[in-house]
Design a protein around this nucleic acid. Structure first.
Length: 188
DNA sequence: CCCTGATTCGC
DNA sequence: GCGAATCAGG
């Protein structure tokens, strides 16, 4: 993958908007965050002032030939599956969902509630999800205002603590889930 | 650990 | 010019 004009433009745009290098790399695809950072510097738009040590740091020699594709960066979101899949989010069990259930698709009222709960600054697109970010979908995936929760989750756990509570309700409680969820969020 | 950007330097 | 490896910091 090369730095075409369009890709550079997108890079500039996203960088200016404050996206992190890894996020930009994910959106561009085919590049690592290192590549993005490198490009940012070459473009001379690193501007986002950091406390760059005025002091010259002693650089160590690079080991040896390591450039040969030793690492296999996988920008794509890996669908991490736990051995035993817990209850699908917001399902009564009857509705057969596709492999990765999308809770947002079946609970419109809840979706609107969630939209208010997730700070814009922490929202994620499909491109920014990692193994440790909450993959709780919010909104209609076919519209532009769709996003993922994106907050931190434990490694391997698909949702943040908050969304886990919603997603993994005991079967015995799920009958009243709609009410409980709404009530729970009101209570905190 | 996870993440962030900064820098070097072989390619 | 490119970006992995590395460094430094949160």
């Amino acid at each position: 993958m090369s730095w075409t004009n369009e890709r550079v433009e997108l890079l500039k745009k996203l960088w200016t908007e404050g996206h992190s290098a890894s996020q930009i790399a994910a959106e561009l695809g085919g590049v690592t965050r290192n590549a993005v950072i490198g490009k940012v510097h070459r473009l001379g738009l690193s501007g986002r002032a950091k406390s760059t040590s005025p002091v010259a740091k002693p650089r160590r020699n690079r080991p040896a030939t390591a450039a040969a594709g030793s690492t296999a960066p996988s920008p794509a979101v890996a669908g991490s599956r736990t051995s035993s899949a817990p209850a699908q989010p917001r399902t009564q069990g009857a509705t057969a969902l596709k492999a990765e259930a999308s809770p947002a698709l079946q609970s419109q009222p809840l979706v609107e509630v969630m939209a208010e709960l997730v700070p814009i600054s922490e929202r994620a697109t499909i491109l920014t999800l990692t193994e440790r970010t909450c993959k709780w979908p919010v909104g209609d995936p076919s519209t532009e205002d769709f996003y993922f929760c994106g907050r931190n989750s434990d490694a391997g756990v698909p949702y943040c603590a908050h969304h886990c509570k919603i997603a993994y309700q005991p079967v015995s409680d799920r009958r009243r889930s709609a009410n409980k969820v709404t009530t729970a969020r009101a209570a905190g």
